[in-house]
């Protein structure tokens, strides 16, 4: 399996790290070597806070091979507070709880297992924000 890919993507998967253009301030996720707005190649790493709202969602019934054992599951497009949109699974909710506009926060979860002997892959998912005592748990 593509271990180098998962190692390479760890800052994105675990820290939601994209780029900020040093010339025009445009934020990108995923990271981009060339700013899509001003075309500058001068950028810094930028870590998104991981809070946003749901732009759209789907319930996947027929899943790609590696996700087959999870189906049905929710995938959404999430508008982050910083004005960037990301794709992620939605978690900690039932299938019928998803609704466009709901607030969400990022959380690290298991994404999938690559077969019986393959690595377990982790990364970000989004859930409704916790407000109670479980925050400190």
């Amino acid at each position: 399996m593509d271990i180098p890919r998962y190692w390479r993507l760890k800052d994105q998967r675990y820290k939601l790290q994209g780029t900020r253009c040093n010339d025009c301030g445009h934020l990108s996720f995923p990271p981009r070597l060339v700013c899509p707005e001003c075309k500058s190649r001068n950028y810094s790493d930028y870590r998104f806070k991981g809070r946003g709202t749901l732009y759209s969602y789907t319930i996947i019934y027929q899943a790609p091979d590696r996700f087959d054992d999870q189906a049905p599951y929710l995938v959404g497009l999430i508008d982050l507070e910083e004005g960037v949109r990301v794709t992620a699974q939605l978690t900690d909710m039932t299938l019928d709880e998803a609704s466009i506009g709901m607030p969400l926060e990022m959380v690290i979860r298991q994404i999938c297992e690559d077969g019986a002997r393959g690595p377990v892959l982790y990364g970000f998912k989004f859930r409704p924000p916790f407000t109670g005592q479980r925050d400190s748990a």
Partner: peptide, 24 residues
């Protein structure tokens, strides 16, 4: 591959995201 498919999104799912938002 890195940011859509690896999140468990299928190609049908991409169209479903569009359709849901369009209806909304």
């Amino acid at each position: 591959a890195d940011y859509e498919t690896n999140m468990g999104l299928s190609f049908v799912g991409i169209n479903a995201l569009l359709m849901r938002r369009y209806m909304h």
